[in-house]
Design a protein around this nucleic acid. Sequence first.
DNA 1: GTAACCAAGATTGTTAACAATCTAGTTGCC
DNA 2: GGCAACTAGATTGTTAACAATCTTGGTTAC
Lengths: 227, 227
Amino acid sequence: MAASFETASDEPSTATVDGVVTAVRDGIMQGRYAPGQRLPEADLVSLYQASRGAVRTALAQLESEGIVLRERNRGARVRPISLDEAVEITEARAVVEGLCAAKAAQRITADERTSLRALSDELRTAVEGGDVMAYTRANQEVHRAIRDISRHETAGIMLDRLRTQSVRYHYTVALLPGRPAVGMAEHIEVIESVCSGDADLAEQTMRAHLMSVVDALHQLDKNLHQW
Amino acid sequence: MAASFETASDEPSTATVDGVVTAVRDGIMQGRYAPGQRLPEADLVSLYQASRGAVRTALAQLESEGIVLRERNRGARVRPISLDEAVEITEARAVVEGLCAAKAAQRITADERTSLRALSDELRTAVEGGDVMAYTRANQEVHRAIRDISRHETAGIMLDRLRTQSVRYHYTVALLPGRPAVGMAEHIEVIESVCSGDADLAEQTMRAHLMSVVDALHQLDKNLHQW
DNA sequence: GTAACCAAGATTGTTAACAATCTAGTTGCC
DNA sequence: GGCAACTAGATTGTTAACAATCTTGGTTAC
């Protein structure tokens, strides 16, 4: 029980509050910290060479982000996410990213259009090469690019929060058989609709794409229960 | 500069962290704390009889909620909200509350249907009586009811955050000439569409309503610049 | 053998003192 | 008279010690 943090070995010295926040958040998003795993303050102090006050503030912030659970006098632990919650998060993403896609279609410039279309090729080569890691990365870059092009700060902040909560599921969805091919087709459709400048079409396409992710989540759940 | 907190006189003793958070948040939402006003830790300590650590934690949480701004070694102050930001927040609300309306239409029970329709009468009497305060309250109750009926926790949390950020603008929008009448008609339309069980219609109606609020915000801005 | 109870260790919550930083007013110099 | 540097006060950031609470393991009574 005492030895549980050997795997995190890349950033041993981050003294500030934000350092601890990003380190723990990245650890959770990368799966180094398992859902439900305890996060004792003393361990984080010695790991990141930060003061206990800083660790404490960081944990409070992570709790408000929804990825850490704290109980009085019982400490903090990584918040587990149920399938229902993952579905809810994806539904919320669908409407907010739909808004971003619509705004992006209205506001996109010529330069952004070319750099956005370049991501289509990245997706294609990743899927053709069977590189799931590269596919996942390009995947996120598409969503990130559209979020940036939309220039909608409020939606961007909301998506940041939603993304940190759902990343673990993204990994697994990408591993479904045939999923990368379907996802690629949908992403390219999204890219083209945004580039076309048709706000309504862009929103519809983006929402349809994320609703298909919801379906994939349910599919994933079925597969898990089969075992 | 030293005498600036006499107006807050209702809750002088709240020792816990959450107490300070809700007290300051309510103070900001009710307009007792003006945008840009400083919030020195020492003042909050003596006002709410809380320890400095509690005040500090509370300010951190309020910052993450987006209603307080903090600068290193320069303290906290109430975050001012520009018109552009108010528009963005309302746009975000439009899509998220649209999701709630759609889910609510699918999940509403018979009991909820009757209690939701009861709010229509509340709106009507408030508008007929010219009671802006009652109108605003019934207004919020409609949105709250639909958010509850939807049983979408993630969307609910997001809306809580958005609402705390935009409440000050709600007040002023309700004061536009003719606005209560328009708002009432839209709200009743929203209520009926949710009760009908048509998810798509409910979403469209809710979004149209909030987009009309966006128009009202722009109208409000024009009126202000006229003076 | 089981269950309740108690005590020691571990973990978190709270408070207070100290250090660092910023702001405003003042003084001195050009 | 104006500008720059300095000092005192105010305000926030940080750390460490203390208090309260929970968990765990063993012991004892039945």
